[in-house]
Amino acid sequence: MEAKDYWPNRQQWKEKNALQMKNTVIAKLVDVSKYYGNGAARVTALDRVNLSLCRGDIVVLVGLSGSGKSTLLHLLGCIDKQDKGNIIIDGIDTSSMSLEQLAPLRLNKIGFVFQSFNLIPVLTAYENVELPLLFKGLEKKAISERVHEVLDEVGLQDRKKHYPREMSGGQQQRVAIARALAGQPSIVLADEPTANLDSKTGEGILDLLLNLNQQKKSTLVISSHDSVVLDRIKSVVHILDGRVSVDTEHSPVQT
């Protein structure tokens, strides 16, 4: 007797689910404005920005110095507050929350890679990656497995006991990437991740970020001046005088 197929459209369901996943909006900015200073000295860093980023998007923020790309990255990362508009991260409207109230959101949903690595100097590579996981309240065993996994992914298993001062810039940035990815965030934000590295190392770091992003299907937003980055990422958000425009070949990024 032929077995009855209780799930005849499995492939179709998978594709539909993947598409839905792909179209899930991870970060949404609605009429977001940000100002610095007061009165006559007030500078508009971002002016009524609307932007939607979906799961798995890889976007590079491009703009002249002072154009507002770092501000946009900071607002997306919930480490700064907008003056107007709404920011929704993974379905959570952050507008009415203080930066301190946003700490759990940053811990669970957002991964940061900084230009100058920003590792904690008194902690080893392993401990730097382990740190955010400890505050997530995970089991010791789960933390250990996860840290070893990400260190493996960034190729630093053999450097796990080294302190930041004992590692090269590229290695430190790899640790920073491992730290950002360890908590499996919905969105990874990288602020000029290759700026402090030589071109070869920078390219390696970019490869790593893109590869890991492809595997994890997290949203990756990079702020960069680096031409190598611009060559590799097709979805580009241009920022000029606080306004954004999207130049995309096949990205769903919307403004």
């Binding site: 700490a103 759990p104 959101l105 920003n118 100097p121 505050f135």
Partner: peptide, 14 residues
Amino acid sequence: VKEIGTLKAIGISN
């Protein structure tokens, strides 16, 4: 200051 800022940025409460 930089370390404290980093800890805050990665989501560690005050």
